[in-house]
Structure formats: structure tokens, C-alpha cells
Nucleic acid binder design. Structure first.
Lengths: 243, 243
DNA sequence: TTTCGAAAAATGTGATATCATTTTTATAAA
DNA sequence: TTTATAAAAATGATATCACATTTTTCGAAA
């Protein structure tokens, strides 16, 4: 486990506990954009535990800026349902329920299968080669136990496929689902261990090479379900009770 | 045509042209929330023409507030892809292309069919009665030529179905698609006239009463396609060239 | 008339101050 | 010890100011 996780593990309800690199942002990127990216990344990688609350001032202090850009970044993240603005104006990481989890998974399946098929006409061999490079990186990350890289490159793999369609308007929706699964995903991956059964990515690549929509749909669905869907109801209950 | 549209028609690229009631917001609603709702409503109802640009200060003046809450509202709307924040920091209403329109329609079909079916287990007779009341209101609005009411109540009809599922996480995505269709929808409705072929809502209601998923999917798909999908390619081209 | 360039205006971004509300803390009573 | 209550602190919301960048304006040169 990376040492950067310890603090959160100690006091689950503590806010503003920690995250990555504080302020090494490129030129031309606004503060708001930078904060948004940082927070989004942290949520995606499961740095924030469900139920945890954050404050504008706390984040501003942590990221060495004023409340204004933080507030806008939070507004965006809540628009994408990565954070929840409670009626009492408190900002929390949404809690997971078995029902919500199922909705998220089924929605991932629907959106991503469809997006893959809609991208198919735009797929070329160069892009498939690129996908194989990414997939190789994922395999290496799994072996190395590098969860962050695994999660990030897995998303990159999917994003690369779907965005082959230049007019794809579902990408923000897919990203929103990923964001909502983020706080849960980290815990799930820990519980599940690394028992990756079959490499669905290789199935997807084969389907893309064959330009076969049905195979592609099946591969994407299988991959999504393998990711978080395969958890038995008992395991889900265990994880849910935790956060 | 409501008189409230004239200004925009006169000078299509003018910004901050007009909208509804300026400041009659309920107590407890924050300024940002109010502005967000106003702008969202305006976009949904096609008050903003594709390509039109808005400014923070302009909207702030128009709505009699400071730039701060306006910026946050705009941030939210761009997160929902109802507005576009250009790299040169200008804020514009996205333009429509034939490809994007097709993506939007197909995504509506996928999302809404699925959401309807996922709501089916939660449907009760009281809710179906409610739907019939809403549908009657729509019929009346169509006859009266009240486009605003037609659009609003049509959305309410769909929302009422999908939100019967208390864990539905696709509603924000559906609303985002509606938002993106907004600026186009108004023009499309004007071009198409009122030739509503068959009342798909009544088909949907029948399917709900029968608790029949297949019928429901078919009815929802037909309704969505009737809405904007039925436009021939020529008509689309005409409309697109306009904005 | 068109094109170019500098001044002026407009605009987005971010920091700070103020206010209202909420949360927390501290103190006292049961 | 627990509960209730009031003071204190924290927090979110908004307005305002300053700054950097972009856009527009306007006049001179081609």
C-alpha cells in the first residue's frame, strides 16, 4: 500500500486528508482547472472514502490557493456527481449502496458497449496498435501491484476506443460513471485481489481487428463486469458496510 | 411565436439578449442556483441560438448580481455540456453538426429506453395516472401552440417515468442530452410544424400499464425519434446552416 | 477602400472582505 | 454521565477589487 494512503485509513471521516503533488501545474492552466484535475484524479483513484466530507477553505489551504477557484472546481465535480452538495451546504463524497452500485455497473455496460460500437467505424490499425501498447502497460502494472497505474491505464484503454469517434458525446457520461465508482473501486480492488480471469482487453482488441460489433459488445461488457461487477453480493455487503 | 423570441431573431449573434423573469426566486435558493436554473431553462427552451456567446459580466448585470455566482452557474452548465468554454476563454452556445445531432439522438434512444425499462419495476398505477394528466396537458399545449409548455411537460413526462426508479443514476445524463438539444430543438420544432403522427406517449402509457418492457422500449424509442429524429437529412441541413 | 497597429475597452481569473448560516465547543443544569 | 443551551469558530455565499489577457475600436498608412 502506498504510504500516501495511511492518513485516510487512520481517520476515515477526516477531511482534506491528503493527496498528490500540490502545485506543479503547467503554464496556461488556470488554478481552477488544476484543482479540478487534482480532485478528480484523487476521487478516481479512490483517495476519498465514501462519506468523507471536504471544505472549500480546507482544500484551498491544502492546495495553496484562495477559495474562489476551489469552489468552482467543486461545483464542476458535483455536476459530474463525483461529489455531493448536501442541502445543509456540506460537501461530501457520496456513499455507495448496493442498488446504486448495480445501477452504475449496468449503466457502464450500456454506455460503453454502445460507445465502442459507435467508435468501430473510426477504428484504424494504428489505433489498435496503440491499444496493445496500453494493454501491455496494464498487464505490467497489475503484476507490479501498481493500482494507480492500473486504474489510469485501464481508463485510457477504454477512452482511446470510444474517442475514436470524433463526435462521441457519451464520453463525459462514461467519465461520470467512472468518477462515481472511484471511491468504491479502490476498496473493491483491494478486496478482490488480483484474480484477473481472462484478459478481456485482448478479446476487445481481437474484436476491433475483426471489426466485429457483436464480439466487441461482448468483450466490453465482459470487461466491465469483470472490473467491479463480479463481486458476489456478500462481498458487496462487506465493502459497503465499511464506507 | 411568443414575443419573447423576437430580440434573438433580430440579432442572432448578440449576447445576453433576453430571457425570462429576472429575479423572483424563492427564499432559501442561492443566487448561483437561481442563475443556473434560469440559464438552463433558457437553453432548454431554445432561447439561445447555437454559436451565440455570453459573458459573465453581461449575465450578471442582466440578472442583477455579481459575477461570482454567474461564473459558478456557467461552470456547471459547461460541465453538463450546455455551454462551451472555448480555449480563448470565451463562452458560447455549442454549434450543431449533422454528426453531433445523430449522436445526440441515438444516445437519447439508448439512455431513455434503458432508463424506462429500469424504472418499470417501480411503476405503480398512481404514477401512471399522473402521466396521463401530464400527457393531457401536452396535448392541450400542442393545440394551443404553446411550445414552452410542450417542451417542459414533455420532459416532465419522461422524467416522471425514469425517476420512478429511486436509484436511477442516468437522469443527469438524459438531462444533459436534452440540454444539448435545446438550442436546436426550438428551431427544429418550428421547421417541422405540429405534425405529430401518432401519440407515442399513449403507447408508452399502455406499455407501462401492461408492465411490458419490450413495448415500453419501442414506445420510448418511437417517441424520441418522432421528437427530433424524423427530420429528413435535407431539413437537418437547412436548419444547421441557419445556426 | 483595405490593412495594419496601437490605444482603449471588455472580459475572465483569482484574492480578499463581509455576511448569514451551520457546526463545534464550552458551560451549566438535570 | 448525559443533556441542554449559549458562545465561539468554521464554513459557504456573495460582492468587490486587482490583474492579465483578449477583443474591439479607431486612426494612419498603403
Amino acid at each position: 500500500m502506498p504510504s500516501s494512503m495511511t492518513k485516510i485509513d487512520e481517520k476515515p471521516t477526516d477531511r482534506n486528508s491528503l493527496f498528490l503533488h500540490a502545485n506543479n501545474r503547467e503554464k496556461g492552466v488556470t488554478t481552477q482547472e488544476h484543482i479540478y484535475a487534482q480532485l478528480r484524479d484523487a476521487i478516481m483513484l479512490g483517495r476519498f472514502r465514501p462519506g468523507m466530507s471536504v471544505t472549500i477553505r480546507g482544500l484551498a489551504e491544502l492546495l495553496k490557493t484562495s477559495p474562489t477557484p476551489v469552489r468552482e472546481a467543486l461545483r464542476r465535480l458535483s455536476s459530474e456527481n463525483g461529489l455531493e452538495l448536501l442541502p445543509n451546504r456540506r460537501i461530501v463524497v457520496p456513499r455507495m449502496t448496493a442498488e446504486r452500485l448495480e445501477e452504475l455497473i449496468e449503466t457502464r455496460v450500456e454506455l460503453e458497449r454502445f460507445s465502442a460500437v459507435r467508435a468501430l467505424p473510426f477504428i484504424n490499425d494504428r489505433l489498435i496498435d496503440e491499444l496493445e501498447v496500453i494493454d501491455a502497460r496494464i498487464d505490467k502494472a497489475v503484476l507490479a501491484g501498481d493500482r494507480d497505474k492500473q486504474i489510469r491505464d485501464n481508463q485510457l484503454f477504454h477512452r482511446t476506443i470510444y474517442c475514436a469517434n470524433p463526435d462521441n458525446i457519451r464520453m463525459p457520461m462514461v467519465e461520470s460513471v467512472w468518477l462515481q465508482l472511484g471511491p468504491f473501486l479502490r476498496i473493491a480492488l483491494r478486496e478482490m485481489g488480483d484474480f484477473y480471469k481472462i484478459d478481456r482487453h485482448k478479446e476487445a482488441i481481437a474484436a476491433l481487428r475483426a471489426r466485429d460489433p457483436k464480439l466487441l459488445r461482448a468483450a466490453i461488457e465482459a470487461d466491465v463486469r469483470d472490473g467491479v461487477g463480479q463481486l458476489g453480493h456478500d462481498a458487496v455487503a462487506t465493502i459497503l458496510s465499511e464506507g
